[in-house]
Simulated scan of single mutants.
Amino acid sequence: MSETQSGDALVSFRGVQKSYDGESLIVKHLDLDIRRGEFLTLLGPSGSGKTTCLMMLAGFETPSHGEIWLDGKLLNRVPPHKRDIGMVFQNYALFPHMTVGENLAYPLKLRKLSASEIAERVKKALGMVRLDALAHRYPGQLSGGQQQRVALARALVFEPKLVLMDEPLGALDKQLREHMQLEIKHIHERLGVTVVYVTHDQSEALTMSDRVAVFKDGIIQQIDTPNALYETPSNAFVASFIGENNRLDGEVVSVDGTLCEVRLANGVVVRAERAGAEAARPTAMSIRPERVRLGLLAAPCETRLSAQLIEQIYLGDHVRLRLALGPAQGFMVKVPIGDVDTAWQAGQTLDVGWMVKDLRALAPQDA
């Protein structure tokens, strides 16, 4: 293991930058350790640098600056086919003239394995994705979900240390996509292989990952467990990008340890958890829609305000209510269907409440 790489890291990016024109940086000084056996998702909007990082790790792009290490080996000048990395793409990238079995055998033949070993590994990989009966079919005879399973099996069949997945479920419909998310997660848990997964779908990232790195403008804003990203976002961008979020802007009027008081634009002062906000400075506060209570349920809350109900949106197991809370016209509240008061009507003024710990005062980065 190189000293450049920390003990439990399989992959290390060290001071990596990427520019296509020599001026603007798509990736800005990336330092990142990917732990052995973890499922790490690179998440961010289009153009944030996440796919470029994956392509540099795969060898399809070269860093403009810095080093990438894999298991103690410097990768910068190693061609893609010699990195021993499995890849799964959105468009499957299967060979149409080869059967499913032949597609899976192809990377094993390149590695000059014996015919018996190839047959055994292909059989095992097909069983893993539950396609045992389809070995002799061609990709064109398979559904999109089956093709994606074949692509996944082909990436795993030669038992690589690392598998990279670039928006692999983007072409599938919602139900199949959700099913495949769990399937990939369970395969990862069984095999213990290291997976780096790129998506712009935050619910997919939360469902599948051990850790998520949130990218914006070529910089990782926060890297954490899904739970920590959702419950304790480090800035306003992460709060808005991960899950649903209500943002309340104001100015910090006092600080008391881990708490602070913030004056909203309408003059109301509220207390919040201090999470990056500074005294006498603007702050963007974050609260999740499911942490807000309405009507009679707001009575025991530490913070209570009044808001006007603008509309209700019925979603089966819960109702989303849009409220005007001071200057915030799009303040959303999520109410389980059993807690909805049938008397609530648009235009009505409702009590709104929450606990202080659920309102986080963040540094006001543009979100």
Rank of each mutant, 00 (worst) to 15 (best):
D173A: 12
A133K: 15
L206K: 05
G140L: 07
Y197T: 06
T199E: 07
S116D: 13
Y197Q: 05
L113H: 09
Q146N: 08
P168S: 09
A151K: 06
L182I: 15
H179T: 13
Y138N: 12
V195P: 06
K161R: 15
Q148K: 11
T194G: 11
P160Q: 03
D132F: 09
A151P: 06
S143A: 02
A171L: 03
A205Y: 00
L126H: 00
E120S: 07
L206Q: 04
T199N: 13
L164K: 07
E117Q: 07
L134Y: 13
V193M: 09
A133E: 15
Q175P: 01
D166Y: 02
G192W: 10
L126Q: 01
L134E: 15
D201T: 03
D166I: 04
R111H: 00
R130C: 04
D210W: 05
K161P: 02
L113F: 01
L156M: 11
G192R: 09
G144I: 02
V129Q: 10
G170A: 15
R177N: 04
H136Y: 13
S116P: 08
A115E: 14
Q146E: 12
E120I: 00
E167L: 13
L134W: 12
V129W: 07
E117Y: 01
G140T: 05
G145Y: 02
A151S: 14
E204H: 02
I187H: 11
L172K: 08
A115V: 10
M208T: 01
Q202F: 06
S114E: 01
A171I: 00
S116A: 15
A171E: 08
I184C: 05
Q148L: 14
M165K: 01
H200D: 05
L126M: 09
H179Q: 15
E120N: 12
R154P: 10
A133D: 12
L134R: 07
Q175M: 07
T194L: 13
Q148M: 13
R111V: 02
